[in-house]
Amino acid sequence: MTTSHFVASLADSTTRLRRNKDAGFLIVLWTSLLLAIITLATLVINTLISGVGSLSPDFLTWFPSPFPEDSGIQSALFGSLWVTLTSGVVSLILALGTAIYLEEFTNPNSRLQRFITTNIQTLAGVPSIVYGILGLAFVVRGPLGWGFTVGSAAATLTMMVLPLMIVATREALKAVPSSLREGSYALGATRWQTVYRQVLPAARPGIATGSILGVSRALGESAPLILLGALAYVSYNPTGFDSDFTVLPLLIFKWSTEVQEEFRGLAAAAIIVLLLLLFAMNLVAIIIRDRSRIRW
């Protein structure tokens, strides 16, 4: 074997090797991708298969019952609505206030801003069950002592989604170009007038999408509420913040642990409803995002 032959075959084999490696790598990437898609597909199909049979108009209007034959989710739907809307509104107000203060009224490099920012990042990383402990110690018992009511659950979930909402609203405010503010100042507006009349309207789509995502997090959350004291049977809708209640994720949790096969179907049906609600909310967020895409 001459040297030139050897080099040629070497070059040939490395090219082939490279090509094989490239193909292998692509297969690995496809596998990862398929894993995500298959997971989503299996999850949805598996839920549909076990749940579709139990879905009916009655399922939405009936109340939870000890018997699977006449169980429904009305009180959980209304409970979810109460808790999610309350925590959504309260956390939006708090998040907006915080974001406006940080973005519009403080110096980005000030100590105060850095302190609050770090603090919010820390809160965003706290596991949801720890918010359950906080709710248990401060809201359900302790200083507030509200018991396991709509109010306690909403307060706990508000604290949980607040960091996410703050981050989202800050991003929305940041996206508003400073030229808009400067123009407003040049016309003699005060800071608050600028924020109120120029920045907030401009940031509205971003704030809306951010808060919808925060609210959908609150809608699906179960862990802190399990800790606060899940109820087994509530067959009426909440009437106020001091009402007993149950929410969809808790009902799903409860039904998942029941043994009778029928309850598994009910849990799957409730999951379908929950996923549809979340999907609708996300769709709204996407539509808002696309409709109001302003190019600065």
């Binding site: 396991f148 004291g229 899940a230 109820l231 087994a232 049977y233 509530v234 067959s235 009426y236 007993d244």
Partner: peptide
């Protein structure tokens, strides 16, 4: 009457 049953 509204009855709530909990399991603690």
């Amino acid at each position: 009457v509204k009855v709530a049953v909990g399991i603690s």
